[in-house]
Design a protein around this nucleic acid. Structure first.
Lengths: 190, 190
DNA sequence: GGTATGAAAGGACAAATGTCCTCAAATAAT
DNA sequence: ATTATTTGAGGACATTTGTCCTTTCATACC
């Protein structure tokens, strides 16, 4: 689980002993393709660190249409943050697009870390700040980039997602219909 | 400055003495209509709590077109969060739409609060969480609501902004052109 | 008062996107 | 192997939105 140690070190210095303590609060979890990390309307009890695999985050509106927020892959934290911090039912769904391995911690254990390890107060705030920055980036992309630009960005940053997700998911991620995505792909292939 | 005390109490219990200490770290600042709280490309050095007035948050793209992120009004925190936490130049601009009174704290003083008052470690994390939730809400609106729905929401939640901002600002806030906003208003007036 | 100036509304047409549909290829089921 | 089923591509047309422009109204200025 060296990936996770590296992830934490990038946030805040942590000694080997502190890391060993920390890791004992976490649990390893394996999801099969199609399994849910967070189900519709359930309280999100865990934050997960993705060791391998892909999680699609989406929600469904009143008309049962799915909108894809994004795709989380290895070395990223994944959670329904709002539900997690408020411990209220989640409007987001987190589902494995392929077999996925995670390190997870639940709400109570995370609060124990905050209480018992001063370093974690700091890590907690920085993680929250990072989640903010990711969300701000997401909003900025929504605001500034055309569907075509978003597609090109996805192609560049997470090219394997294009194999793992279907056209419907990708179109909803771009905020357009399948038909428009088809036109975008046509245009790109010149 | 009772508004601010109430604001903090809603986040985390705070005694009168703690509040008196806290407030000594803050400064009162007055902006005239058109003044900038954060200028283009400058590092955002402060977080502000709005006592009265309206701040428009926007950025300009490569083509010098302004996009309005939102409008902050009384009892809200306002800052270019990303720039503030990273102390790097801001891509957002914060400008007073009318005369505005704020309580501000700079980066160094806030970090002193974090260091000297354990309660503030907690407040800091919760404020950051709230900023996240606001941004998530913003992204959710971008994703789910049509320009017309956004207009109706603005009409409901911040009706006075419609008087204070011009058509251009509101259209950019809705993510459409003036022409489309004109059509929306026509439609609403039946 | 009369003339500039600027902001908002709306007409005309073009471009982009959505809806509904068919077709072809790939995959799954028997 | 043959037949269903699913998935992605793309045609035809309608709707929405943008671009460019003119008109109207209000305000400022001489």
């Amino acid at each position: 689980m060296d990936k996770f140690k590296q992830f934490l070190k990038n946030i805040s210095p942590i000694t080997d002993t502190e890391y060993a303590d920390t890791i004992s609060y976490f649990t390893e979890q394996n999801l099969n393709k199609g399994d849910f990390f967070v189900k519709q309307g359930r309280v999100c009890k865990h934050i997960g660190f993705i060791i391998s695999g892909t999680i699609r985050i989406y929600y469904t509106n009143q008309k049962d249409e799915e909108t894809t927020y994004g795709f989380c892959q290895e070395n990223c934290l994944t959670t329904s943050f709002k539900s997690f911090v408020s411990q209220m039912p989640s409007h987001l769904v987190l589902q494995a697009l392929e077999d996925t391995k995670l390190l997870t911690i639940d709400y109570e254990h995370l609060n124990l870390l905050y209480k018992n390890y001063p370093a974690w107060q700091n890590i907690g705030r920085v993680i929250t700040q990072n989640e903010f920055l990711i969300m701000e980036q997401y909003a900025s992309v929504l605001n500034n980039e055309s569907a075509k630009e978003k597609y090109l960005r996805l192609l560049k940053e997470q090219p394997n997602v294009l194999q793992k997700a279907n056209i419907e998911d990708i179109a909803s991620y771009l905020g357009v219909t399948r038909r428009t995505l088809s036109r975008i792909r046509q245009e790109i292939s010149k």
